[in-house]
């Protein structure tokens, strides 16, 4: 790989960094607070690539670093071509946010922490808005049973399930990027079946019971568009 190719590759990778620094498309892969440092990294790469191109054109008689020829070959290791793979994957597959397939492979989370829970937020239009992680952890391990009898509203995607009533409702929590995503899942009963990966907003009540998946008795279920932030953080 010669210097010019190197520089173009760096520009391309840098451009992806800059784009994802701004665009919501990055939220399928990363948490929002990660975007600024991705943007900075992209700018640095664009600068490095640009510097390489300028240097090269500034040196007459060496188009493409030809003057260095094979000596310069180690400068552009062949393995660098692999950097084009994520670019092509992004362009061709444009992978979506993790969904029911990935959630189904994780199995239930047991307890998450032994620390106490804060007071439930105030209700809005007759129900408390809760993240799925909050709902699942409170349902499974809150000694105060703060969910008992409280109408709640949660948003998640549908994961069909043959083994019991209704379907599973799931949403991922991400600490850093989608690679560390953990799915929090509850069972929704009283709403029949729904196709996989449909995003729904469920208003209902926690149905106390044992087992490692809590049960949510649905009052109303609305299909909603996939949220801009597909994960909880």
């Amino acid at each position: 790989m010669d210097r010019r190719t190197e520089s173009v590759l760096l520009l391309a990778v840098g451009a992806v960094g800059v784009r994802f620094g701004f665009s919501d498309a990055a939220l399928a892969y990363l948490k929002p607070s990660f975007q600024p440092i991705l943007l900075i990294a992209g700018v640095v790469l664009v600068l490095l690539g640009g510097h390489g191109l300028l240097r090269d054109s500034a040196r007459p008689g060496s188009p493409g670093g030809g003057e260095h020829g094979d000596h310069d070959d180690h400068g552009g290791p062949g393995v660098a071509w692999l950097l084009a793979v994520p670019l092509l994957v992004l362009l061709l597959i444009a992978p979506p946010a993790l969904g029911s397939f990935a959630a189904g492979r994780q199995g239930p989370v047991a307890s998450v922490s032994d620390s106490g829970f804060v007071e439930l937020p105030a209700a809005r239009e007759g129900a408390v808005d809760l993240g799925l992680r909050d709902f699942v952890t409170r349902a499974l391990q809150d000694p105060e049973r703060s969910l008992d009898g409280v109408p709640v509203r949660v948003v998640g995607f549908v994961m069909p399930d043959e083994s019991g009533d209704g379907y599973l409702l799931s949403r991922f929590t991400v600490a850093c990027c989608a690679a560390d995503a953990t799915a929090y899942t509850t069972r929704v009963v009283g709403d029949g079946e729904r196709p996989a990966d449909t995003w729904v907003e469920v208003t209902g009540r926690w149905e106390p019971g044992d087992g490692d998946v809590p049960v949510l008795e649905a009052d109303t279920v609305t299909v909603v568009p996939a949220p801009e932030e597909p994960y909880e953080y």
Partner: peptide, 30 residues
């Protein structure tokens, strides 16, 4: 070509692959 890549396995792999790469990028640059 979008239809060629519909498989859930491939898509999940791509999502995780891209996010590991993107997430490592700033640290690698540093």
């Amino acid at each position: 070509v979008a239809g060629w890549f519909d498989s859930a396995t491939l898509q999940t792999w791509s999502t995780v692959f891209v996010s590991i790469t993107l997430q490592a990028l700033p640290f690698l640059v540093l």
